[in-house]
Amino acid sequence: MSLVETENLTKIYGTGETAIVALDHVNLHIEPREFVAVMGPSGCGKSTLLHLIGGLDRPTEGRVRLDGQALDELSDDALAKLRRRRIGFVFQFFNLIPMLTAIENAALPLLLDGVNTAQAKQKASEWLTQVGLGARSHNRPDQLSAGQQQRVAIARALITEPVLVLADEPTGNLDTKSSDEIAALLQQVAKTWGRAVLMVTHDPRIAAYADRIVFLKDGTIVNETQLESARTDNAESVTRMIKAMA
């Protein structure tokens, strides 16, 4: 059994003539420790897929299973709990709370889960060290660079030891150097720390860090590519594939 399984996952926005099919019967499987990148043109349904897998939105049709658990069977609160414990999120604009320090931001999911502050901070500190930010743990987001902020977001995503990390354009707001660092870090998340990672990106160079790339177009999976060895020089072949599909 795969870690993530989608069965005919469909999402339609609006009704009647104005209805837009964002996802159309998508079947996708993600294995534990696998790093999957989702690519495709704007409006192809990448983010919608991520949101549905993350339980942020409900499908119009079909279902998502995480570790065998069908998400559509869960209440709003149960979904919140699942996101808190089993899934980690990394966003394009980091979405850190500006009033909290790096360590407090990273500790948030544990605090939401009722873990006591000292323990949560201890764990946050460990994860910040793991992502290379141990020295900046008491800085507020505005005192950190964009790349550093995204590292805090990754630490936050990992703190509850989730089985799946979802990253929506995690490098979309970063310079090239930082982008590479973050992509490498996500690779480490999968390979070293054993989490499955599903990343949405526009950037072939960043997608090339993944084990597998899923190409979406008009809401359906049009291609899937298993990369033999994930590295930066895969970028060229990935770019060629995108051009071929266009």
Partner: peptide, 15 residues
Amino acid sequence: HDIGMLRAIGASRAT
């Protein structure tokens, strides 16, 4: 955005 993020990382409505 903050509220959305909190909801995304698992904060319930009651939270």
